[in-house]
Computed example of a mutant assay.
Amino acid sequence: MEDMAAGNHCTVTEFFLVGLSEEPELRLPLFLFFTGIYLITVAGNLGMITLIGLSSHLHTPMYFFLSSLSFIDFCQSTVVTPKMLLSFLTKQNIISYTGCMAQLYLVITFGVAECYTLAAMAYDRYVAICNPLLYNVTMSYQIYSSLISGIYIFAVFCSSLNTGFMFRTQFCHLDVINHYFCDLLPLLKLASSNTYTNEILILFFATLNAFVTVLTIFTSYIFIIATICCIHSREGKFKAFRTCSSHISAVAIFYGSGAFTYLQPSSLNSMGQAKLSSVFYTTVVPMLNPFIYSLRNKDVSIALKKILERKKFM
């Protein structure tokens, strides 16, 4: 009772993360594999942010949104992957109660921020293709900086509310999280107190965030496709499509992996499947996004060549 009064939620002061695999022979190969993924993720996303910062012709709303997306991907991967790598090297991957709540807070924050950033990028492409003459007015510095700020403020609000109610949840006996990071649903499975409010909050924000972002993306692309169809020249159609093809790929990968995780029937959604699909959107997607935007974007390729040529002459 004294521990409860002190706010330590009964006797649990730390959790044990099961990790991705409990098979000893898989630990070293998995460690090397995910270390490689993490290094590529860090280099790709920080490289993208640096490239956009150094290239003056990339100082447009589209690329500021992309820079924000790269920052989110870098942070999301850094919050999750190092702790996962540790689970491959240690028999007992321990995380403190405070550390677990901090990880949960950051995972939710960057997850929500990514959803809304992708939606804002879709709106940006809609304005650029459907109303090009009004683009500089509609997507002025004040507007796109307000959008980016609003995304982070709302993401922090969602995260604060969900994590705040998780702090009120009691964990008295079970302390083994069958996951490789502290996520909402695996934590709630360990709760010894009523989790009804937590579940309602998760359902509300998941529905709200999915509805708002998917509706924004879907509506934007309906207008974009309608506008592209009205362009007479094949070159004009190709140019218009090319400006949003990278974003379509990023959206498909991110939301596809999220749907695979959360929209399966409960009878099919085993913990093993949940872990694998979580790996995809917490580690693989952050690695892929810089490549999607650099390989399929002419402006980024030109900016990279200019930076490399500038270094050669120095």
Score class of each variant (00 low, 15 high):
residue 172 C to G: 06
residue 173 H to T: 09
residue 175 D to I: 03
residue 175 D to E: 10
residue 175 D to M: 11
residue 176 V to S: 06
residue 177 I to D: 04
residue 178 N to W: 04
residue 179 H to R: 01
residue 180 Y to T: 02
residue 180 Y to H: 14
residue 180 Y to L: 11
residue 180 Y to M: 13
residue 181 F to H: 01
residue 182 C to R: 03
residue 184 L to C: 08
residue 184 L to K: 00
residue 185 L to H: 04
residue 185 L to G: 07
residue 187 L to P: 11
residue 188 L to Y: 01
residue 191 A to H: 09
residue 192 S to P: 08
residue 193 S to M: 09
residue 194 N to K: 08
residue 195 T to L: 12
residue 195 T to R: 05
residue 196 Y to C: 11
residue 199 E to T: 06
residue 200 I to N: 04
residue 200 I to A: 09
residue 202 I to Y: 09
residue 203 L to R: 00
residue 203 L to I: 01
residue 203 L to Y: 01
residue 204 F to W: 05
residue 204 F to G: 02
residue 206 A to W: 03
residue 207 T to S: 15
residue 207 T to V: 15
residue 208 L to H: 00
residue 209 N to P: 14
residue 210 A to M: 14
residue 212 V to K: 02
residue 213 T to C: 15
residue 213 T to W: 02
residue 214 V to I: 15
residue 215 L to Y: 10
residue 215 L to G: 03
residue 216 T to C: 15
residue 217 I to Y: 04
residue 222 I to T: 00
residue 223 F to C: 12
residue 223 F to I: 04
residue 224 I to T: 05
residue 225 I to F: 15
residue 226 A to E: 09
residue 226 A to C: 14
residue 227 T to M: 14
residue 227 T to P: 13
residue 228 I to N: 06
residue 230 C to E: 08
residue 230 C to W: 00
residue 231 I to Q: 08
residue 231 I to K: 09
residue 231 I to H: 03
residue 232 H to F: 08
residue 233 S to H: 04
residue 233 S to Q: 05
residue 234 R to T: 12
residue 235 E to C: 15
residue 236 G to P: 13
residue 236 G to M: 10
residue 237 K to E: 04
residue 237 K to A: 09
residue 239 K to I: 12
residue 239 K to D: 14
residue 240 A to S: 14
residue 240 A to M: 09
residue 242 R to F: 12
residue 243 T to Q: 14
residue 244 C to H: 05
residue 247 H to D: 13
residue 248 I to F: 15
residue 249 S to N: 06
residue 249 S to P: 06
residue 250 A to Y: 07
residue 251 V to W: 03
residue 252 A to C: 13
residue 253 I to K: 00
residue 256 G to H: 02
residue 257 S to R: 00
residue 261 T to G: 04
residue 261 T to K: 07
residue 263 L to I: 02
residue 264 Q to A: 15
residue 265 P to I: 01
residue 265 P to W: 01
residue 265 P to D: 02
residue 266 S to G: 00
residue 266 S to Y: 00
residue 267 S to Q: 13
residue 267 S to T: 12
residue 267 S to H: 12
residue 268 L to D: 03
residue 269 N to F: 03
residue 269 N to G: 11
residue 269 N to V: 06
residue 270 S to E: 02
residue 270 S to H: 01
residue 270 S to Y: 02
residue 271 M to L: 10
residue 272 G to C: 01
residue 273 Q to W: 01
residue 274 A to G: 10
residue 275 K to R: 15
residue 276 L to S: 00
residue 277 S to K: 03
residue 282 T to Y: 08
residue 282 T to H: 10
